[in-house]
């Protein structure tokens, strides 16, 4: 088996193959729950936990599952993990559980999870799969958080509202607010705001990628010029 490049796994998950911005997977929860930063973070962490668990298990049993039945097996594993996460949230983050509602059980249908199980975990050893699950999950979570923060800020002029749902009572005063005078742009909270916001995030990523590619090319030509015999 080829050498596994752990650094590459991390950079793919967080940036180059970001599941939300590049693969455009798992957009349904992305659109639905990112109306505040904390909601986005909550769902992102739940998804990451499921992704990590499913990648590890799928990778561990990859030699014993026949190719013909692998998809039902993956779905069973993911569904069990989602049920576990749902119960955990029900027990310890009850308010957040109520806010996210149907989107927690719907993590089962998140294409990112079965996509990573099929494309990565079923072909790679456990450690690499765990790292892949973690970085893919954190990559998606980052997008959920940024999008949620953007929509929350534009839509109602606050940040971290409801932080106590996730971090306990001490976090209640984390909320930043522009004050009551700010009349929110309601559209940002509504579904179109999610689409427009995601579009901007993708555009920003593409701009950054283009810039760094240009810089790399420039550095290469410079190096070539310096090392050439003249």
């Amino acid at each position: 088996m080829a050498e596994i490049d752990y650094r590459r796994i991390v950079s793919d998950g967080l940036w180059h193959n970001n599941q939300a911005l590049v693969a455009l997977l798992g957009l349904c929860p992305l659109m639905a729950v990112t109306n505040t930063l904390v909601n986005g973070l909550g769902l992102g962490l739940a998804t990451t936990a499921v992704l990590l668990g499913s990648n590890v298990i799928v990778s561990a049993i990859r030699h014993w599952v026949r190719a013909e039945v692998r998809l039902p097996v993956f779905v069973m594993i993911i569904a069990s993990l989602v049920t576990a996460v749902e119960l955990v949230m029900h027990a310890w983050f009850h308010e957040l559980y109520l806010i996210l509602g149907i989107f927690i059980p719907l993590i089962v249908t998140n294409c990112t999870i079965i996509g990573r199980a099929e494309a990565f975990a079923s072909r790679n050893p456990v450690a690499a799969s765990a790292l892949d699950g973690l970085s893919m999950g954190l990559g998606s979570t980052a997008v959920l958080v940024v999008l949620g923060g953007m929509r929350e800020f534009i839509g109602q002029g606050t940040l971290f509202s409801g932080a106590h749902l996730l971090f306990g009572e001490a976090a209640r005063h984390w909320e930043l607010s522009l004050g009551d005078g700010y009349q929110g742009l309601l559209l940002a909270i509504l579904p179109p705001g999610a689409f427009i916001g995601l579009g901007f995030l993708i555009a920003i990523k593409n701009i950054l990628d283009k810039r760094s590619a240009q810089a790399a090319r420039k550095a290469e030509t410079l190096e070539a010029a310096l090392t050439s015999p003249q």
Partner: peptide, 8 residues
């Protein structure tokens, strides 16, 4: 439509 939805 943006304004109508945002500032009804």
């Amino acid at each position: 439509a943006l304004l109508l939805i945002s500032f009804p």
